[in-house]
């Protein structure tokens, strides 16, 4: 990056962060929550971009890391008295790291679609375990709990408001972004990208490709787990639905919509997807009542969103952010 580029980049970064800091002060409650949620899903999608965009491995199992992050946080909050925010994060990260290690060990022996399929099947195993182990996980109903306070228990704490929660999430997502960005630009990240470009050659040069991939999966799983912790704290529950593979599928959709290999793209993609979801789930009931077509009232938003996604896979494989970058470069 040239000096001029760097200047533009950091100016843009500061402006966006500033806007996101101010946003909860001007937005109504619903949209404040919505924005926080975009950031959390964006972090999850960003973690998966490390694999999809930078290493060339499409994970269909990120729900396992995300879900285990949620359950880890839940365990800390329910078992430790008084509930401690930092312990929740720690437990969540530990749980997702354990799962990530397991998945990384087995699935990194495989490439391309085999990797995608095995990550998917692994996440389903964790789903089945969590779903059926009712005594510990609460089974289908999941676990619910009170939100821990911000601060250090016993020293100084202040309960979260939706605004402070937003700032807290924003801080973690921003730091995660900077860390991941640093990782992708580090020698380690360069090796990952060369694995993506040509795995055989990278191995021939002498890099232990499998080990690099394993570290990439674990790192990615860790940030996905962090997103899970944040989501658990925001919503005060952990549920098996969030370990289900549909979540993994949505993460892949966020990546493709926003643009893989850009880190920021997946956040844009998450925002775009959630925006479409909100839009369509209001549009159809409105059409149903306005034009007297009651059968459209329950029309699932995932049908138009799925079609948009397919069209983007075919016609806009570089995603929204990639497309804008291309346009700006011209």
């Amino acid at each position: 990056m040239t000096k001029r580029h760097a200047k533009i980049y950091w100016t843009g970064f500061t402006v966006i962060i500033a806007l996101l800091v101010i946003a909860p002060l001007v937005l109504p409650e619903f949209w404040r929550r919505f924005l926080t949620e975009i950031l959390i899903w964006g972090l999850l999608a960003m973690s998966s971009d490390l694999l999809i965009g930078y290493t060339g491995m499409v994970s269909f199992g990120h729900s396992a890391f995300f879900g285990l992050g949620m359950y880890g946080a839940a365990a800390a909050i329910l078992m430790v008295k008084p509930p401690n925010l930092w312990l929740a994060i720690l437990y969540g990260l530990a749980a997702s790291a354990a799962v990530a290690m397991f998945v990384a060990y087995f699935s990194t022996r495989l490439r391309d679609i085999y990797f995608a399929i095995t990550t998917l099947i692994f996440s389903q195993i964790f789903y089945v375990i969590i779903f059926t182990w009712t005594e510990v996980t609460g089974g289908e109903n999941g676990l619910s709990f009170a939100r821990p306070a911000l601060g250090i228990p016993g020293v100084y704490t202040v309960p979260f408001t939706s605004t402070t929660l937003h700032w807290f999430v924003l801080a973690i997502v921003a730091i995660s972004y900077l860390v991941l960005r640093r990782v992708t630009q580090s020698p380690f990240g360069m090796v990952l990208q060369s694995i993506r470009e040509n795995e055989a050659r990278t191995r021939a040069i002498g890099y232990p490709v499998e080990r690099y991939k394993m570290v990439a999966v674990m790192l990615s799983g860790l940030f996905a787990g962090l997103a899970g912790v944040l989501y658990a704290i925001q919503n005060r529950f952990a549920a098996p639905d969030f370990v289900y593979f549909l979540i993994s599928g949505e993460v892949v959709i966020f990546n493709v919509m926003g643009g893989i290999g850009t880190l920021l793209g997946p956040i844009v993609g998450a925002g775009f997807f959630l925006g479409l979801r909100e839009g369509f789930s209001r549009l159809f009931p409105w059409i149903a009542t306005t034009f007297d077509m009651p059968y459209l009232a329950e029309f699932p938003y995932l049908i138009p969103v799925g079609i948009i996604f397919i069209l983007m896979v075919i016609f806009l494989p570089q995603g929204l952010l990639g497309f804008m970058k291309q346009r700006l470069n011209q």
């Binding site: 995608a116 699932p300 995932l302 049908i303 799925g306 996604f309």
Partner: peptide
């Protein structure tokens, strides 16, 4: 339209199809 592209694109596209079909059946 995806012939000749990375096979991973076909997983993505057929995943999109599966979402559409499943939700259509639900509706």
């Amino acid at each position: 339209p995806l012939l000749g592209r990375d096979p991973l694109n076909t997983i993505l596209a057929t995943f999109g199809l599966s979402l559409v079909l499943q939700n259509y059946a639900l509706w």
